[in-house]
Amino acid sequence: MWIYEKKLQYPVRVEKCDLTLAKYLITQYGGPDGELSAALRYLNQRYSMPNRKAMALLTDIGTEEFAHLEIIATLVHKLIKGATPEQMQAAGLASHFADHEHALFYVDAEGHPWTAEYIQAKGDPIADLHEDIAAEEKARATYEALIALSDDSGVKDALRFLREREIVHSQRFSEALVLVREDKEQQKFF
């Protein structure tokens, strides 16, 4: 069960309409290392996770990723709000406009739709936690690229917050990996 809370996890401020920036940011909505991928990856791995602490962590980080998805959605929505078809076309968003007008869609920066191929569930806790740590580092790297591409101080501020969260998630998953390795040593699978 999930319950919606009518607030963002972090306040979002956007200075002005910026379609080019929106086109890049959308990758954290529906791209390979984006927040949708993150939420679905972690919540789906819970069922086969044998360690109780890792199970709780997947639940709590997976849920936080939905809050991040909403921050990205709000940023993109504000960046494209009120843009004319001509402006969308000039920013390389004519195809987006044809299919979605001003709606958001789960695509990467080049317009490729989200696919389950972006995520993994091996069923082996060590393999899955390595996947999760790598995913967090890829998301961190993407946020660093997006911060470099952005000149809107409000957008930059939100992106910096999201980047910091990926670092914390990576640290927590690394701690869970140590616990899972300890379990494995005790089971003497070697």
């Binding site: 607030k7 963002l8 996890q9 972090y10 306040p11 602490k53 890792a54 709780a56 962590l57 709590d60 980080i61 936080e64 914390v168 998630h169 927590r172 701690e175 869970a176 616990l179």
Partner: peptide, 20 residues
């Protein structure tokens, strides 16, 4: 909302810390 965001954020952070 901003006051809530500050407190809720600290709780999210502590929750993750307490998990592992």
């Amino acid at each position: 909302i901003f006051d809530l965001q500050k407190v809720s954020f600290a709780l999210v952070e502590l929750q993750l810390y307490l998990d592992t």
